[in-house]
Amino acid sequence: MSALVVNKLSCFYQDNQVLESLDLELENNEIICLLGESGCGKTTLLKAVAGLQTKLSGEVKINGKTVNDNGVNVAPEKRKVGLIFQDYALFPHLNVFDNVAFSLSQYSKEEKKKRVDDVLALVRLCDYAQRFPHQLSGGQQQRIAIARALAYQPDLMLLDEPFSNLDHHVRFQLIHEIRELLKVRSMSALFVTHSKEEGFAFADKIALMQAGKIVQIGSAQNLYSHPKSKYVADFMGQSNYLKVCVKDKYSYQSDLGLLTSNTLIEFETGKALNLLLRPEQIAIETAVNGLGTVKQVDFLGAYQQITVSYQNNDYRIKQSNHFGDCMQFKVGDKVTLSVLSHDFVVFTQ
């Protein structure tokens, strides 16, 4: 049984369709990241699952239980979903212990303490039970928020940009920590972010959203290497587009020479297409008679990014720095470019 099933979910907000007949399925013990620009509907989807969104049509099932359907709208407090927020949402008037014990009113004092200690140990903050939220760092507050949600033993965890307020170095440490934690507890989770790096690090699968729809869902590698549209390609990483022309079933003609495809080309001969080239899929070499000219060189630590003007098109190329300074380029250098062998992705527009 799936942890979450969303079936043909639509949502209107002030005459705008925020979600458009959206389908999504979350397996048990799976973490899916809803990735997209602000306003694409990802937070609305999260709220809809949590029961905080009105004016919905479609079906939502949590652990096989229908919580949203025609005429059915289960109150948020009866859905057993854990919610994690960008601003942590710890109750400022309660200390850490009381925050974590918030949902445990029905238990005896001993049982309560046992459960709180249990989850605090999980997030490694046992010594902080008597502190108040404002006495904790952002990362600690978010861990307490996770502990509070876990203490309630939810069926599903929903995380709304939970790492956005944290410094870069704390952020990725916490992302790994919380991912481990959810995996240990066999939690299924839906995670919303606009940062693909967070999505890569946290989720098993990424669902990229655009204008109320999921445009592609799959592993991060899959979305990066085999995007189904230019939008997905551009969102997942830097992209160059090379104009190519189908020569036969196995090769393309292009400005960068004849390109041999690893797979059978499905388009008819002579069809003009755009070939996606990631910056690391282009090789660059100095050549006195090269047709390309180096326009800009950006040193970025582990690699450098070189912008080359080649027959009126600009190409961005990523060059690892592990060669030391033997591959130094200067603005104005003449270079040749070539395409490294990989599974080609082409778009018709």
């Binding site: 029961g51 905080l52 948020p76 407090e77 919610l83 601003d87 918030f102």
Partner: peptide, 25 residues
């Protein structure tokens, strides 16, 4: 507002949320 939502997701209804979260704050 996320405090209200947090409380609701932790199994408290609207009246309990007002009493336990909003009024004290």
């Amino acid at each position: 507002p996320s405090l209200d939502l947090a409380s609701r997701s932790l199994g408290q209804n609207a009246a309990q949320t007002i009493r336990r979260v909003n009024l004290p704050l």
